[in-house]
């Protein structure tokens, strides 16, 4: 199992090499100047907040339903 996992890791790392070596290397790394990064950060923070809210609300509803059944 460990050998298979190591093999998969090595193959994936090798396959990912061309992705790192893409064009426009001058601009690579200056992510603070790229609006896509800022937009993605904000979007993910909002998505995480929504997911936590939905999970908490869902668990609250399930608890209320369960407690309602036990009192009946």
């Amino acid at each position: 199992m460990k050998r298979i996992c190591c093999l998969i890791t090595m193959i994936t790392a090798a396959l990912a090499c061309p992705a790192w070596a893409h064009d426009e290397t001058e601009e690579l790394g200056h992510h603070w100047a790229d609006a896509v990064y800022t937009h993605e950060i904000r979007l993910q923070i909002v998505a995480m907040a929504v997911a936590v809210f939905v999970l908490l609300l869902g668990s609250m509803i399930v608890r209320r339903l369960k407690s309602g059944r036990t009192t009946q």
């Binding site: 990912a16 992705a19 896509v36």
Partner: peptide, 23 residues
């Protein structure tokens, strides 16, 4: 997951997360 699987999955997420916007 088991240690080996979780290490591989996290490594994959690490690689993909590093090249996320560029790739």
């Amino acid at each position: 997951a088991t240690p080996a699987v979780s290490a591989v999955v996290t490594f994959l997420v690490y690689i993909c997360g590093t090249i996320k916007i560029g790739y």
